Simulated scan of single mutants.
Amino acid sequence: MLIATSVPQTWIWNGFPICYVTEGDHGPAVLLVHGFGASWGHWRKNIPELAKYCRVFALDLIGFGDSAKPTPNQKISYTFETWGQQIADFCREIVQDKAFLVGNSIGCIAIMQAAVTAPDIVQEVALLNCSLRLLHIRKRSEMPWYRNYGASLVQELLKYSWFNQLFFNLLATPQTVKNVLLQAYKRDEAVTDDLIKILLKPAQDQGAVEVFAAFTRYSQGPLPEDLLPQLPCSAIILWGADDPWEPVELGEEFNHYSTVKKFIRLEGVGHCPQDEAPELVNPILLDWMISRKTY
């Protein structure tokens, strides 16, 4: 399996340095957007294969990876509106073409937000285990009382910097990250030391704690069911059927939206199919972008 060895580049967005990589010199443009706590490195098993036929771009959302992590203030907030604008501006300034947008987890919400607010930058979108945002304030009433109370308590405590640091220090360890990945991934062998390092490295950056706390407290903004009917383009959805966080049965309900062309279950795969099962994901994405025979 080819692993991306792309040299990271820097793009200045609103005064902040943003990390991105690019590979491939012909074919359609595709932009890959990671999920919470991840970075472009989560696409390292996809970039080389896609780059044989496409111009591939992958960026670190502001607050993640090697991109800037400014303290939340009046100039920057960690919301899907912010990330959607970042993606739209990146497509206009760096990609300079309509792109196929591919996201994983919260990256799916970010690319849909970009597509809805900036239709000129998008061809179509692919959603990989889209975040259902089950802790969103509008979904709290559907949760058991004890889960709602627990989530609300943690979010309230995250208003205090001492708790943020303590909580973050407990999570940002190799063993804890490994345990979380072993829960999220169905294939244990995909949880490698290399993957753990990719996810842990940005946690050492200044501002990482504040970004973590800000997003964990964030229970507003768009839900996928808000954005799907507004999409100015078609979408395909890929879903690891063994995802413990985003149940596939709830994901399959998105099939009801006219913008969804295809829903593909990936059996025996968890929350991050692009990393866990690239041999399944890469051909689907290439067929979607290149041949269009299936879709």
Rank of each mutant, 00 (worst) to 15 (best):
L285Y: 02
G27E: 08
V260H: 06
S131T: 00
S219H: 10
K201C: 06
S39Q: 09
A4S: 15
A126V: 13
K98N: 03
Q85K: 15
A115E: 03
I290R: 08
Q183T: 15
L250E: 04
W83N: 10
F80T: 02
T294Y: 13
K178V: 00
P232F: 09
N73Q: 10
E93M: 07
E49C: 05
K69N: 09
D97I: 03
R138P: 04
T259Y: 05
I47P: 01
E81F: 06
Y185I: 05
A110L: 10
L153P: 09
M289E: 04
K186R: 14
S152I: 00
G107M: 06
R138W: 02
L182F: 13
S161L: 07
L61M: 12
A184C: 07
E142G: 07
A151Q: 11
V211F: 08
A68K: 02
M289N: 01
E124M: 12
V269P: 06
E249F: 06
A29T: 00
A118I: 03
D188K: 15
Q74S: 09
L157M: 13
F167H: 14
N104F: 05
V180Y: 12
Q175F: 12
A38S: 10
R44N: 03
E49S: 08
G268R: 06
A277G: 01
L31K: 02
W288I: 05
P273Y: 03
V56D: 08
V260S: 07
P232S: 13
G84T: 12
G41P: 00
N14G: 11
W239K: 03
G41T: 06
A126M: 14
C272R: 00
P222K: 10
L31R: 01
Q96H: 08
A208L: 13
P247R: 08
E276N: 04
Y53G: 02
N164R: 15
V33D: 01
A88E: 03
Q206E: 15
P70D: 14
Q86S: 13
C91E: 02
G150R: 12
D194Q: 14
I236P: 01
T5A: 04
E276T: 07
G41L: 04
F215L: 13
N129D: 15
L171G: 08
S258Q: 14
V180D: 11
I236Y: 05
D243M: 13
E246V: 08
A172G: 02
S39M: 04
G65M: 11
E49H: 10
L50D: 00
F64K: 05
K197R: 15
I264N: 04
T176A: 10
V116K: 05
P202N: 13
L166S: 14
P8A: 12
L61Y: 08
K98V: 03
Q220L: 07
L59N: 10
S105H: 10
L238A: 03
N255R: 12
L181T: 04
E249A: 15
P247T: 11
R217K: 09
D66A: 13
L200G: 06
T71H: 13
E49A: 09
V102A: 01
V180P: 00
Q206L: 11
F167E: 11
G24M: 07
R140N: 01
A235D: 04
